[in-house]
Structure formats: structure tokens, C-alpha cells
Design a protein around this nucleic acid. Structure first.
Length: 272
DNA sequence: CGTGGGACCTGCTGGC
DNA sequence: TGCCAGCAGGTCCCAC
């Protein structure tokens, strides 16, 4: 599921429900996620209040009282759901935060590639967060930034923009879409992309992400937002998942290649 | 230092 | 209908 727009959608969905709420207890049903959740974690969270939420790339942060932070990552299949305390568990509900007002926040992740971490230090200095690149929707993320960073990079442009040390939050879906919209072939070396092309690419990355956030994210398979509704961006996908179908802009058929273990769909007619 | 591949998991789809 | 291979929205870590 979750690339940046899906994480942003979840943040917006749970924010009004959990901010300022006090945690009554935390129950871990399945500790074995990407990293094992320590047995002490629930004890540390009891009686803490959620002060605010934030997002960094695909990480969702719950900022708690007493300088504590819960860091969540959703891997490929994770999501958060709001329920009432006592509602039956869904399959793959691994962690449950029960608040004083009997509302429950549940972390569900079928594939368990997601993560739930705790820190009482500056979360942005956490080893997972401190080396992250720019936020794609920030002013700093620009054509100049990508251009200068890429001058000696032989890596493909697609892998370059999916590298979160460069820019965060762009996974396979949105990389595929942005390259299609910008007319750039995914195999082109990053160093060969011109400033002009980077200008188009940055514009399409921002536009694609913003559009997806407005529509509540992309539901390819099982993503749902906090209210259990799917995202509606899937209907707008022009390249991802459309290999073998007609390009929306020209008469070519969309092709599929594998690039660094990931499928890339592109149009050889309008992506050069 | 850059790059490629394996690892971590479950669930769904499509072919036989 | 059943079984199995292959594939999936991510990313860390290690070997070369």
C-alpha cells in the first residue's frame, strides 16, 4: 500500500480522533513485525497523551507527552484503523492502542513488513530518519536540487527518485506515474537528464502526489483509509498496472520491464 | 562508494 | 476444485 499519499491520508484520518487523547493501554498481539516489538513497549506508553502527529516520508510519528515518540512504518500492506474498544479483532491486527475514551487505534499489517518503534530521543535523529532526503512537497525539492545531485549518478532515473536518501515517499506507483507524465524513460541514467527535464519531473511528482492525497490515496489491493474506505486515485493511474494496454497519449502499447526487482511500466512512444 | 540481490511475510491470481 | 508458482504498494543489510 502505502506511499506518501496513503500515509498522509491515514494521518489526516486519525488526527482528529487521537490528538489530545490519553493512552489507557497498548496491546501487542503480534510482536514480530519488521523489527520485533519489545515487551516493555506497552508499559512505557500507559498514561501518555498524544500531543500531535507528523509525517516524515512514509513514517508516521505519534508525538507523546514526556518527549516520547512512536514511529510507525507501514511496509507494503500496513494501515491504521479506528475502532471502538472491544470491537472484534480483524485478521492481522497486530497492535492496539486503547484510549481513555474507549476509542481504539489498530495497526494491521498482513505482510508484517511494517514497523512500530519507540524513542525518547529526538525522533528525527533516529537512525531510520536522520539520513532521509527532502520532502517532495517542500519548496526545497526542486529541479535544481535533483539536477545537481545527479550529475555523477549512473543509476536509472526511476531508481534515483525512488531512493529515499534523495527524496522521500515516492514508491513504485508514483515513480511510474510521474515519469510517464513527464515523458521520461525510466531507464535513462540520472546524470543524463537535463535541467529542463528535471523541471518537468519535479512538477509531475508534486502534482501526482497532491492529486493522490486529495483523492484519499491509491487502492491497488487492500489499502483503506481510517474509515475503511478505499482511496480513489487508482482510477487515475495512467501507467502503473496498465502494461499491455494502450497509452493514453499516443498509439503505442505500454511496455513492462523489471528494474531493480520492481516492475516498471512505460510508453516507448512518449517516454524518451 | 555504488550497485545488486536476498531477506523479511502473507495473500491473491492465474495456469495446469 | 486444488495445488503451486509467481507476484505485490518497502527498504534494510551484506557482498562484491
Amino acid at each position: 500500500m502505502p506511499e506518501l499519499p496513503e500515509v498522509e491520508t491515514m494521518l489526516q484520518g486519525i488526527q482528529p480522533v487521537v490528538v489530545q487523547q490519553q493512552i489507557a493501554r497498548v496491546v501487542v498481539y503480534q510482536p514480530q513485525l519488521r523489527w520485533r516489538i519489545s515487551a516493555e513497549l506497552p508499559l512505557k506508553l500507559i498514561d501518555q497523551r498524544v500531543d500531535k502527529l507528523s509525517r516524515r516520508g512514509k513514517y508516521l510519528l505519534l508525538h507523546l507527552s514526556c518527549q516520547q515518540t512512536v514511529i510507525l512504518h507501514f511496509g507494503m500492506s500496513g494501515y491504521l484503523r479506528i475502532t471502538s474498544n472491544g470491537d472484534p479483532l480483524a485478521k492481522h491486527d497486530h497492535v492496539e492502542f486503547v484510549f481513555e475514551n474507549d476509542i481504539s487505534l489498530r495497526f494491521n499489517d498482513a505482510r508484517r513488513f511494517g514497523a512500530l518503534l519507540w524513542t525518547d530521543e529526538d525522533p528525527y535523529q533516529h537512525s531510520l530518519l536522520k539520513n532521509l532526503g527532502l520532502e517532495p512537497l517542500s519548496e526545497d525539492f526542486s529541479d535544481q536540487y535533483l539536477y545537481h545531485l545527479s550529475r555523477d549518478k549512473k543509476i536509472s532515473i526511476k531508481q534515483f527518485i525512488m531512493n529515499h536518501h534523495v527524496v522521500v515517499g515516492i514508491g513504485n506507483i508514483y515513480a511510474t506515474e510521474a515519469l510517464f507524465s513527464a515523458g521520461i524513460h525510466p531507464l535513462r541514467q540520472a546524470k543524463d537528464i537535463t535541467l529542463q527535464q528535471y523541471k518537468a519531473l519535479v512538477k509531475q511528482i508534486k502534482r501526482t502526489l497532491q492529486h493522490a492525497i486529495q483523492l484519499g490515496g491509491t487502492t491497488v489491493k487492500d489499502f483503506q483509509n481510517t474509515a475503511g474506505k478505499p482511496g480513489y486515485f487508482k482510477q487515475r493511474l495512467k501507467a502503473y498496472g496498465r502494461a499491455g494496454l494502450k497509452c493514453t497519449r499516443c498509439e503505442h502499447t505500454l511496455e513492462k520491464i523489471r528494474l531493480g526487482q520492481r516492475v516498471s511500466v512505460f510508453c516507448s512512444g512518449c517516454q524518451t
